[in-house]
Design a binder for these strands. Structure first.
Ligand SMILES: [Zn+2]
Ligand SMILES: [Zn+2]
Ligand SMILES: [Zn+2]
Ligand SMILES: [Zn+2]
Lengths: 149, 149
DNA sequence: TAAACACCCTGAAGTGGCTTTAGGGTCAAG
DNA sequence: CTTGACCCTAAAGCCACTTCAGGGTGTTTA
């Protein structure tokens, strides 16, 4: 299978696949000796599918590598696998909590504009001009699940 | 006021302040002629405070610039300001919805591991090995509010 | 047979919002 | 007169890609 076909099958771009190969998230593809085109066998397809499945669940590359490593430990129990998922689930729910806090604060801010009028009197601007309320903490960027943009 | 003092006051790093100056999010600081140290007056402090306030609410630099521009349009009404907040509020609530979807899917996935045992039989791995369920869409990276990590 | 068009390749740079690193200069206290 | 806290710059690194520039290949159709 050529790269374009694989990309369609897995609903990603060819650039993404080449990028994964470059950083070693998937093994190197086999090249056509005539034209240097990449070719993929069932093994490649399954591995990439696994990776895309994990990415669709917003796991980081690091987490994915942990899963792939743990999976290949023959005979070991699946504790590590379960732990990766548990931790990642916490990443997601932590971020949800943060964003919900943010949502509240933005609602409050929005209500400061009682009746739209001149810029300078807008309650939103007045609020933003004032020092930051200690309730607002912003997003922690230690969490790999990203914010809202 | 020197940069370190300002950073403490606004609860950010000196590097962040220098970075904002570099990209033009805040105007250039005044320099001490002897040692080239940055110095800040009340104007600078207010502007940076406004920016940090917006960042704590997870607004993008672009959104902040829109607010700053709209604020300086003397006599204009505050419609633009309100719109920026409304749009950003939607960014945040859209991301919350996405992450809640994700959270559900991760819960479902986690339950696939009924009783921890050998890797290969772990329901989590089996699920991740199978094709992506069409219910899973992953995060849209068109939204500037980031994910969970 | 030649032009058009879809596909493939590479390497480098750009995205956002910073943080980190490397390599220095300045200043007050002990 | 040295220690340590502070300041400076330019460049690279972070993540997970995307975009760009420049070119090769392969099939179809006029
Ligand atoms: Zn995670
Ligand atoms: Zn208003
Ligand atoms: Zn926004
Ligand atoms: Zn398990």
């Amino acid at each position: 299978m050529k790269i374009g076909e694989l990309a369609k099958k897995l609903n990603c771009t060819v650039e993404t696949i080449r990028y994964y190969e470059k950083i070693g998230l998937i093994p190197p593809s086999v090249r056509d000796q005539n034209n240097n085109y990449r070719h993929y066998n069932q093994n490649h397809i399954e591995r990439l599918s696994f990776v895309r499945h994990c990415r669709a669940l917003a796991m980081s590359h690091e987490e994915i590598l942990e899963l792939l490593t743990a999976r290949e430990q023959d005979g070991a129990s699946c504790e590590k696998i379960d732990l990766v998922i548990d931790n990642h689930l916490k990443h997601v729910s932590d971020r949800i909590s943060e964003l919900q806090q943010l949502e509240k604060q933005l609602h409050t801010l929005r209500k400061q504009c009682k009746t739209p009028g001149a810029n300078q009197e807008c309650g939103i601007i007045q609020e933003l001009d004032s020092p930051i309320d200690s309730n607002i903490q912003g997003l922690k960027n230690s969490n790999h699940v990203s914010g809202s943009h």
